[in-house]
């Protein structure tokens, strides 16, 4: 750990990378960036709804993470990083609100498509929903949510954060989180049910069977 250059095997040790990065080693931190940038970007995209804003939020999240690395007390680095990502998205949304130049209306529906961002090959479970139409429909339904509900739903169902972690990120209490999440899920469900007729029958999972 003393040296900036770690043995090859340690380069794969996340804890070691974090430890070195914590001392200000940018190359070690960048190794973490490469490891997590798809996850972070995905979350940012689900919340922000367009590639540009998602990219900005992602970059800010990593910069912020590097600066606050000393506050990381162990545990799940992924959760910690996603919390910072959510905050970066919040900041970005606030910034966009202050400067309507990018008009808010664009955010939710501007990009109905996940755009250039492609499914990460390494994460095959998602291949279940390969259908780009369905993906786009889900993304659009998420984007149709209000900012608060959208953030909670992304943090919970895209990030997999616990209620408590979501409360930490958003500053809302657990009761509010529960309420927002349930309403967000119901809204997305209704949204999908409205469009699912456009989808292949294989994806008409929402109908009461």
């Amino acid at each position: 750990m003393q040296s900036v250059y770690l043995p090859e095997d340690q380069l794969h040790d996340e804890a070691a990378l974090i430890e070195v990065a914590r001392r200000g080693d940018l190359s070690a931190f960048n190794a973490l960036v490469l490891r997590y940038q798809n996850i972070v970007y995905t979350v940012a995209y689900r919340i922000m709804g367009d590639q540009q804003s998602a990219s900005d939020a992602t970059q800010e999240a990593f910069i912020s993470a590097f600066r606050r690395l000393s506050t990381f007390r162990g545990g799940s680095f992924r959760s910690w990083l996603l919390r910072i990502t959510a905050n970066a998205c919040y900041d970005e949304l606030r910034r966009l609100k202050r400067r309507p130049a990018t008009s808010l209306e664009e955010l939710p529906s501007a990009e109905s498509d996940d755009g250039p961002s492609l499914p990460d090959d390494t994460d095959t479970p998602e291949e279940v929903i390969e259908q780009s139409e369905l993906r786009n429909a889900i993304q659009q339904c998420i984007q149709a949510l209000g900012e608060d509900q959208r953030t909670v739903m992304v943090l919970s169902d895209v990030d997999g954060l616990s209620y408590q972690e979501i409360a930490d990120v958003t500053g809302a209490n657990l009761g509010t989180i529960k309420s927002r999440l349930s309403r967000a899920r119901a809204a997305v469900r209704d949204c999908l049910q409205a469009v699912q007729e456009l989808l292949p029958s294989a994806y008409r999972l929402m109908d009461n069977e």
């Binding site: 940018l26 931190f29 960036v33 990593f62 961002s117 492609l118 994460d123």
Partner: peptide, 28 residues
């Protein structure tokens, strides 16, 4: 139906970052 919705959202593919977000000394 709620469960299905959550499942669908959870199974949403992870996106590929449009570019590398590695930091440069100037950025930090």
């Amino acid at each position: 139906t709620l469960r299905q919705t959550v499942e669908l959202v959870r199974l949403m593919p992870r996106l590929r970052a449009p570019r590398d977000f590695t930091l440069t000394p100037e950025m930090v």
